[in-house]
Design a binder for these strands. Sequence first.
DNA 1: ACGAGATCCTGTCAGC
DNA 2: TGCTGACAGGATCTCG
Length: 299
Amino acid sequence: MERWKSPFPTLDPPFAAMPELPEVETIVRTLAPQVQGRRISAVTVLHPKVVQSGEALLPLLRGATITGIRRRAKLLVLTVRPEAGSAAGQDLLLAFHLKMTGSFFVHPADALPLKHTRLIFDLEGDGRLFFDDTRTFGYCRLMQPGELERWPFWASLGPEPLDCPPETLAAHFTGAFAKRRISIKAALLDQRLVAGIGNIYADESLFRAGIRPDAPASSVTQGKLLVLAKAVQAILRQSIEECGSSIRDYRDALGNAGAFQNAFAVYGRKGETCAVCGAALQACRIAGRGTVYCPRCQQ
DNA sequence: ACGAGATCCTGTCAGC
DNA sequence: TGCTGACAGGATCTCG
């Protein structure tokens, strides 16, 4: 398949980003070969708020093996198998939300915590898995398998936007957005309606689909929702292919920056000219988020 | 029931 | 130069 070439000039840092679906997906892919199958020899909690639930289960992680790593929405989920004969008896799950500034990195065994390191897993053999988070909004929940499904946030998550054909996603939008008075952008950001989309990809998808971000969700026609579904999928896939968007804080689990920020058409480009029509890109606030759009291309 | 706005937190940057 | 305040934002909470 031919790679989509960005017509937009490269953006230089600084700007600001947070791990949304493509970034978490990239982190999972880069972290997997570094932690899969490895045993945890010790866990160090460095911030009181980082372990949001299941603190009592922490001792069971010592000697446990990381058997799985996956993504759902913007969450990264580790599956961990406790040592044979331990009190747990069954696999445990660690669900991480990175919020805006969370990141993972495997350091050498003698590495000391950094300024914003919140959690450290010592890995047998060599290596320390750090969870760093400047703004401390990120967290992890340590759970037994059944607990994950009972976690209200998990249970309320909408469908994965990349797990179905665009027609199916569009049909879902039609049902989920009907009778909603919220703006189409607020609808895209609502994790209960569709999972994994944050501020960057909401703005970029709406630009590509030619839809005003402040349009009431229920007012967008079925035809336009199909265009939107295709735009959401194309942009998320392209970003995953480019290892996400890098903005100041974001790095994948190998320390690499992504490249999708160079393809931003509107995000962070307030006042610049639209690369398609030349109009000045406008900024406003929608659903409490900074929003940039082209007043001519998005009607 | 639904939607809007405040809240959490730290680092960065514009303006005086 | 150094200070202050605005801003960034995901999910949750409160309020109308």
